[in-house]
């Protein structure tokens, strides 16, 4: 297992959001986590990234406990996140946004090559490289957010709702990119509302309901699961 959550509890103030979540991600997989609004998906990713406190339980990465380590250390260990709502630095240029993604690695270590690789994959970002991040379109911002997270050269990439607010055409494009990233060797943990798309790229999936995992299966089985169909695939 590359990543393992064992009975993780987390929350805000008196509210407990995650009530003992256990999931595992194997090296090389794409794992999708489905769940309704407010189920705790983002909270889970933020707890992995060290932003939210893990109140109980353990998070293992490469066999080492990483819960409640500072966020920058988690990035250093090889987990980076493209957060919900993208959160591009609005007044940094596209290129500077990418540089920030590589912050933990320092300026030397092949930064220029990585930027070039991103630009080859996303020519539109190359065109916009000196434009301010806040002026990009939603789809461009999403590409930037994913690329920015990749700049850390993560072993595990956390993606929180990469399809949020994008047109269907762009969504397909983004998911193709996700598949391609995975093919090149990055393990991905994907949180999505768009269950259909998510299950089509993922190998396995979990269903999170009000802070608990209620279902776990291969993506193919989940797609044909009646309960999943009803709740997340729109019939």
């Amino acid at each position: 297992m590359l990543l393992q959550l064992e009975e993780v509890h987390a929350g805000y103030g008196a509210i407990e959001v995650l009530k003992g979540v256990s999931i595992g991600v194997e090296e090389g997989e794409i794992v999708a986590v489905l769940g309704a609004n407010g189920a705790g998906k983002s909270t889970m990713l933020m707890t992995i990234s060290g932003i939210n406190r893990c109140r109980q339980g353990r998070i293992l990465f490469d066999g080492e406990a990483i819960q409640n380590r500072p966020p920058h250390e988690i990035v250093q260990r090889g987990i980076s996140q493209s957060p919900e709502g993208r959160r591009i630095f609005p007044r940094l240029s596209v290129r500077e946004n990418l540089e920030m993604g590589a912050f933990q690695r320092g300026h030397g270590n092949g930064l220029g090559d990585d930027v070039e690789r991103v630009f080859t994959a996303f020519p539109i970002l190359k065109e916009r490289q000196s434009q301010l991040g806040g002026t990009l379109s939603g789809g461009e911002q999403q590409m930037l957010a994913i690329s920015r997270a990749l700049m850390a050269r993560p072993k595990l990439l956390l993606l929180d709702e990469p399809s949020l607010g994008l047109a269907p055409m762009v969504v397909t494009r983004i998911f193709n990119i996700i598949r391609e990233i995975n093919r090149q060797g990055t393990t991905i943990l994907l949180v999505e509302q768009n269950a259909n798309m998510a299950l089509h790229v993922a190998h396995r999936g979990y269903v999170l309901e009000t802070g608990r995992i209620v279902l776990e299966d291969t993506a193919a089985n989940l797609i044909s699961n009646e309960q999943v169909k009803r709740s997340y695939l729109g019939g």
Binding site: G11, Y12, G13, I51, N52, R53, P90
Partner: peptide
């Protein structure tokens, strides 16, 4: 005395 940090909004 909030028990948890709140992530600041952008």
């Amino acid at each position: 005395h909030p028990q948890e940090p709140h992530p600041p909004p952008p």
